[in-house]
Every structure is written in structure tokens, then in C-alpha cells.
Amino acid sequence: MIYLKLYFEFFKIGLFAIGGGLATLPFIRQLAGKYGWITQKQILDMIAISESTPGPIGINAATFVGNITAGVLGGILATVGVVTPSVIIILLVAHYFIKFSETQIVRSVFSGIRPAVTGLIAAVGFEVAKVTLFNVDVISKALSIFDIKILPMLNIKAVILFGVIIFLMNKYKKHPVTYLMGSAIIGIIFKF
């Protein structure tokens, strides 16, 4: 039953995605691989939509994946699923230990988790970059006949745009939507 599965998979994400923001990303990518609910490219579309609308990425991601997979009801159930564990945990924490975040054990756990979450997100970035910035087919063909030419392996248009955005982001620090809008226009003009 797809609805139950959506609820429980997103319940798990709500339970283990710690650290806010992009922390849900590695889990969504794993779902993409496990069930084929969404594609690698749709993950990127989802982030774009999340960044361009108000509201937390974790919630937006659940609604998006649920909707794509099983329509409006799927979206609602995935969203409820992702929220359920944190509501239970926060209610317990608020009731029992207010000084929770200052205990040594919590700090120790986080000293381990934070670099792991960074590594997980970096890995997802690497995976999606592979699909978008490189021509994967060309690479595997080139490697198989040991005739390695660098240029056809890169999706030149994408690599240039990537470099320009990184540069602008660090120079002007505007809201992400600005860069996404710019990328959309470039995409239409240069037929990405």
C-alpha cells in the first residue's frame, strides 16, 4: 500500500534527518534509488522549488515527493509522516528536560553527527553534479576504449554556468531565488 509506505518512509526521515536544511537530502536520494519514487533530476527540481517558496525544505520535500508518487493524499501523508517523530520528541523534551541541549551527551552526539551530515550532503551534491555537469555516457565510453578526451566529458555550458553562479554567490550573497531565476533564464536562452 503506497500511502502507508510513504508515511513510514517519511516517518523514518523525520526521525533521522538531524541538522536542518539539506539534512533530508541524503534520505530522499536513497528513496529515489530504493523505490524509484522520483528521479535524480526531480530531486534537483524539488530543491529549486523548495528554495523558491517559503517554508522548511524538509516539509516541502515530503509534500513534493508524496505528490509526485501518489497525488495530493500522498503529499499530505508524507508530510504528516515527516513531522510525527519530531512532534513526539519535542513534546517529551519540553516536558522532561528543558536543559537538554546543554548536556554533555547531547553535545558529544552532535560532535559526531555534524561532520557526518556534512559528508552525506556532499555525497548527494557529488551524485547530482555527476548527472548534470558531466556527460556520464561519454565518460564510460571513453574509459572503456582508453581514449580519454577531457572536453566531451564535461557538459561545458553547465560547468561555465556553475562557475559563474558560485562566483556571484560569494561576491553578492543575494537570496538563493535570485540565482535560481537567473539560471532559469540562462537555461531558456542557451537551451540547457
Binding site: L44, E51, V128, A129, Y179, S183
Partner: peptide, 29 residues
């Protein structure tokens, strides 16, 4: 048109992720 727009946007998103990872790395590692 929508496909081209999202083609561009995906590159933008990868740039956003890279930037976030870079910042987190500096802070956390």
C-alpha cells in the same frame, strides 16, 4: 521551455548545494 528553464535551474541548485557544503565544512570539520 520549462525543460530548458529547469535545465538551467538544476545547475543553480548544484551551486547552492556546493556552497552550503563548503560553509558547513568550514564550520564543522
Amino acid at each position: 521551455v520549462v525543460q530548458y528553464a529547469f535545465g538551467g535551474i538544476r545547475v543553480g541548485v548544484i551551486a547552492l548545494i556546493s556552497n552550503t557544503v563548503f560553509k558547513m565544512f568550514k564550520q564543522v570539520v
